[in-house]
Computed example of a mutant assay.
Amino acid sequence: MADPRLKAAFAERRFIVAPGIFDMISAKVADGMGFDCLYVTGFGTVASHLGVADAGIATYSDMVGRVGTMARGCRTPVIADADTGYGGLLNVRHTVVGYEAAGVSGIQLEDQEMPKKCGHTPGRRVIPAEEMALKIRVAAEARKDPNFLIVARTDARTTLGLDEAIRRGRMFEEAGADIIFIESPESEAEMQAIGQAIRKPLLANMVEGGRTPILPAKRLQEIGYAIAIYPAIGFLAAAAALEKAYAHLKATGDSTAIGESYGFRRMTDLMGFPEVWEFESRWARGDKVEGNQ
């Protein structure tokens, strides 16, 4: 079931900052930070799972299990990237049903041609707007829980221009999307124009090194946005830390002088080892489950 707190946060007009998660370590760390929402990034999840580019290679089967593991492992509501819905209208229906059953609170669908490409990268092509609007209508009909949110993304800005991207955003509003995501505007002025044109909650994609300027959350809210996702922040930080640690180990043959780390004890706590140890200790003493004594 979708978490009703996410829909309530939008209704209350609280600005939502959603960090990207891509595996269970990132999910558990972010889950303890007090965010209103976490965002399962396609780029990061495909990279960590398959070690390949986010270029339409991962399938529904590759993704739904990992998405579900992250959603079920977090107390925080989760929105998950589902690319194009992994095919046509029937695939979209199957994807929405599967992601909702997996425990996410929102699904992101985009209007790219298959195979899709990662946002903020060149060569993205989009399907006709009317075809995407049908996908959104199918998605809205397929969900069982009204708290399950549909994020409609258009990648039209890069190849077809801002006006077409805004037109598509309005179409997707009418088709039943709960949140509109116009990918990769290229200036703050463009973002302001989007904020003035779209009525439903708007999503800003803050990608370090991407095509869109990184604006503070307060400024995003001022110009009309309701949620900002930071899909790359986690895996970029993780890759940098790993590179530094591995380079130090290779150069010195010593892992003890790398500097500050998360700490083995903290990691065992994060992964739930104390509960495991308590369980094993209790049963090693021969304790019985109540009712079976």
Rank of each mutant, 00 (worst) to 15 (best):
R153Y: 05
I229M: 04
L202I: 11
D36T: 03
A245S: 14
I179V: 09
A238M: 14
R265S: 07
I107Q: 13
M114L: 10
I57A: 08
E12G: 02
L270V: 06
D254M: 03
P128N: 12
T41V: 09
C74I: 02
L270I: 10
L50M: 13
G253F: 03
R266I: 02
L202R: 15
G34T: 08
T268A: 06
R13I: 05
A18I: 07
A140H: 10
I79W: 01
P77E: 08
R13F: 00
P19E: 09
V151I: 14
E275G: 07
D81G: 10
P146V: 10
D36K: 09
Y39F: 11
R211F: 01
L50T: 14
A217H: 12
M1A: 11
A27N: 10
G32M: 07
I223R: 04
T158C: 06
T159N: 13
A142W: 00
E186R: 14
G291F: 00
S105Q: 11
V276P: 00
L202K: 15
D269M: 05
I194K: 02
G169N: 14
G20H: 07
G161Q: 15
R153V: 08
M70K: 03
G68R: 08
R211T: 12
I127V: 15
I136M: 10
A247D: 12
G44F: 07
